[in-house]
Amino acid sequence: MNIFRFAGDMSHVVSILVLLLRLRSSKSAVGISLKTQELFLIVFVTRYLDLFTTFYSLYNSFMKVAYIASTTYIIWMIRFQEPYKSKYDASQDSFLHIKFAVAPCAGLALFACLVKGELSPIDILWTFSIFLEALAIVPQLFVLQRYREVENLTGHYVFFLGAYRGLYILNWVYRSYYEQFYRHNWLVYVSGAVQTALYVDFFYYYVVSKYYGGKLTLPT
């Protein structure tokens, strides 16, 4: 554990708490992408199968369970609970059909694992989750773009999620310098870089709007 990784994890936790606060305070899921939440749930469930096979630490196991539970709860809220359910507008959240995200990532993961000779289902699903995570934020970014004016807490949610990814890049730099037995995984680095790059545009408008104290409005 290093400071960047811990700060990244905490930023991730904060983003989820902000999202829950956002849903509860406005009593609506307008501006929130259910698709992104569902993609994140697929990511967590496929990546954290090692909960059953490998014990890293209490912290690690606790966080994994917390991510799965909180994301499941958020999806349940938007899908089945009033008033979120009736206010959720699926037509605003139409970009990127789940299967068009899942299928290419599954194919790529299978290919990557065949090349590396990692043939256990847990390894393949772990690699799949690395690729899918990079795409998971895309529907949310499109929902923001559709409404253009980003509600405060929704903006903070995406900001903390992006900060988490940025801090993980610093974590990999740190680990490759200071951990003797750290093995580079270029697939993790490349999809992590792609994922972080997706946030850059949002970050720019977020920081500018905070600096000038105005509302966060995205350009058309």
Partner: peptide
């Protein structure tokens, strides 16, 4: 402890 390719990360 040795780490296996970031698999101990969240």
């Amino acid at each position: 402890a040795d780490a296996d390719e970031a698999k101990d990360e969240l």
